[in-house]
Design a protein around this nucleic acid. Sequence first.
DNA 1: TTCAGGATGTACT
DNA 2: GTACATCCTGAAC
Length: 195
Amino acid sequence: MGKLDRSFYDRDTITVARELLGKELVRVVDGTVLRGVITETEAYIGRMDKACHAYNYKRTPRTETLFAPPGTAYVYLIYGMHHCLNFVTEAQGEPAAVLLRAVEPAGDCADLLARNRFGCPAQEMTPYQRNNFLNGPGKVCKAFHIDRSFNGSDLTGGVLYIEDTGREPARIYEGKRIGIDYAQEAKDFLWRFWI
DNA sequence: TTCAGGATGTACT
DNA sequence: GTACATCCTGAAC
């Protein structure tokens, strides 16, 4: 189905976070296509959210990307070794984004994703590996070969984008976001969504 | 199956 | 120097 255009991202961040569920992350690397159905997201909204890197419109070299136009990728390094992929939302100048937390393999690229993650075909994954395949932001980035070179890149281009599958999730769950205990009242916002 | 602890680099006090 | 939108390993149960 169709690639999502900029207007999809140019909306309220909570809405975008919910509507990304069930859509497909697409990553083209050296002519091969990697796909994953998005199953978990979180919203971060700078104007009111102490958990957001750009809380209260704080501008630093790192957060500059959050002020970019909607439909831009925001990628940063966390804990010294893991990358996190976000989709910038809302109007240019409004620092807000959706964090991609988890996907499931789509199409027939499970083998390629397993090789990127564990160096073996999907068939040879241990049960533990199968249950912890793409269920975290750093894991998704590793399997899809996404690093900081994608920070600021355009999600309406040809190497990293989202496609509409035309399918609606049967049910969307919501809860508190992960790993932001420092964020005072914002830690209790129900801005995490999953299928 | 769960849990504690360590890895590791960048941003910003 | 400290904190960080995390993940992996190994040991205990």
